[in-house]
Design a protein around this nucleic acid. Structure first.
Length: 118
DNA sequence: CATCTGACGACCG
DNA sequence: GCGGTCGCCAGAT
């Protein structure tokens, strides 16, 4: 599965703002929601110019484990993202995707879904 | 092919 | 406001 749309969307996140996994999932109409987006992040090529640190969990909380959690926090501060006690003030810097351009909704022919579908 | 785990979210206490 | 539990899908074993 190519998470290109996810990466592209993350790349469009303005500096100083952040978004959440669930938001990205909704915007891209990704099945499974946040969880699947999380997998996409895990598969994100390191150092590819993808501001993965701008993606946080719901409520602006960093649920990621160490040591990347600390690094993300540092990066966020560097970006100028308001934080409070280790939690991002998502209410003040939350960025919502303009709109979804990709639509992984395969569904397609109501006929012979055979073995292509899960 | 079956099962577990995992960069999460929403709900409940 | 914080912590624990259940449910979601995809990927790895």
């Amino acid at each position: 599965m190519s998470w290109d749309p996810v990466y592209q969307l993350i790349k469009t996140i303005p500096r100083g703002q952040v978004t959440t996994y669930g938001l990205l999932a909704k915007a891209l109409k990704i099945r499974g929601g946040a969880r699947t987006v999380g997998h996409a992040m895990a598969a994100t090529p390191s150092g590819e110019g993808i501001p993965w640190h701008r993606v946080v969990a719901a409520g602006g909380r960093l649920i990621i484990r160490e040591p990347i959690a600390s690094k993300q926090r540092k990066l966020l501060e560097s970006e100028g993202v308001p934080m409070r006690n280790g939690r991002v003030e998502i209410s003040s810097c939350l960025w919502t995707p303009p709109s979804a351009r990709a639509k992984p909704r395969k569904k397609a022919s109501p006929r012979t879904r055979t073995a292509s579908e899960r």
